[in-house]
């Protein structure tokens, strides 16, 4: 009801470029246990922003505060300029949410759920089209209680999108989906973004974050430990590019050790595995050419977000 926010009257409005979700200094504790400890980030209009972190890192609590389902203990949240705690109803018109651990009435059919939730919004999306995109057309007359875990998940994704939201928050988007459904869901999310919808994605699934996200905040122990593009995060991981090959003739150890950016080196029955950076790769190739050595079964595996993630989180 009130438009004043007693918690934060001094915070200056940061003029980031078209930030549609702003979180500043968010704190939340349950019974003395701090779950979110000073999280700040801003999601720009039209981007897919990932929150990645181990279990219990405070990801879900953070987005539940953004959704207005929980009130922060401290900090300032704005969704399209609105405070989700004070202006909850207005925010629900703009923001679609897929929640963790929520269900529907067991005897409600998929069709009825889509119709019900469509009726809650002023200008809803086409529920049948969403059902089709999510592979639920065959299940329209199935009751919620009879759906498989993956089908329930897909229905909740449909319900998150049914209000034609400007921002959609997806908590554990593809948990419980088989690889095919997962890829279809990713395609759908990319289409949604292509229509200008901002996506806030909570995940602990690296491949998903790397494939979808423009930027990722890595959350650990209630704090953001890194915030960057996927490539930027990967670049921070030390020794994450692996080069392995079996040289036709032995190479000089000293020369190898002098390679730029080399993090580690291993020789297993004549097969070398070097960990380093892009510079290391270039230098290895030049070395092989110079020494006229053939590299059998040469493999260069890129660093993945996994490596970066393990580097940037403690657990």
């Amino acid at each position: 009801m009130a438009t004043t926010n007693p918690r934060n009257t001094t915070a200056p409005t940061t003029s980031r470029r078209a930030a549609v979700v702003e979180v500043e200094g968010l704190r939340k504790a349950y019974g003395g246990r701090t779950v979110v400890d000073g999280v700040s980030f801003a999601v720009e209009e039209g981007e897919i922003f990932g929150i990645l972190g181990p279990n219990g890192a405070g990801k879900t609590t953070t987005v539940e505060c953004v959704e207005g389902l929980r009130s922060p203990d401290a900090g300032r949240i704005r969704v399209a300029g609105l405070d989700p705690a004070a202006d909850h109803e207005k925010v629900t018109h703009l923001l679609g949410a897929q929640l963790q651990e929520s269900e529907l009435q067991p005897k409600l059919t998929v069709r009825e759920a889509l119709e019900l939730y469509a009726a809650l919004y002023p200008s809803p999306a086409d529920g049948y089209e969403l059902a089709g995109r999510l592979g639920l057309t065959e299940r329209l007359d199935t009751r919620f209680g009879k759906l498989s875990g993956g089908q329930k998940q897909r229905l909740f994704i449909a319900l998150a999108l049914i209000g034609n939201p400007r921002i959609v928050v997806l908590d554990e988007l593809t948990t419980g989906l088989d690889p095919r459904a997962r890829r279809d869901t990713w395609d759908l999310i990319e289409d949604v973004r292509a229509r200008g919808v901002t996506v806030l994605l909570v995940t602990h699934f690296m491949e998903e974050a790397q494939r979808l996200c423009d930027r990722i905040a890595i959350v650990d122990g209630g704090r953001i430990t890194a915030l960057d593009t996927p490539q930027g995060l990967i670049g921070r991981a030390a020794g994450a590019t692996h080069i392995s090959f079996t040289p036709s003739e032995p190479l000089d150890d000293a020369e190898l050790a002098a390679l730029p950016g080399l993090a580690s080196m291993e020789d297993k029955n004549g097969r070398l595995t070097l960990a380093g950076t892009d510079d290391t790769v270039n230098a290895v190739v030049q070395l092989l050419v110079r020494r006229r050595v053939t590299a059998h079964q040469l493999r260069v595996t890129d660093a993945t977000l996994d490596d970066a993630f393990l580097d940037l989180t403690t657990t």
Binding site: H93, G96, S102, E103, P122, G163
Partner: peptide, 11 residues
């Protein structure tokens, strides 16, 4: 079952 919670996220 979180049905009330799910509805809390709607208008």
């Amino acid at each position: 079952r979180g049905i009330l919670r799910r509805m809390s996220a709607t208008p």
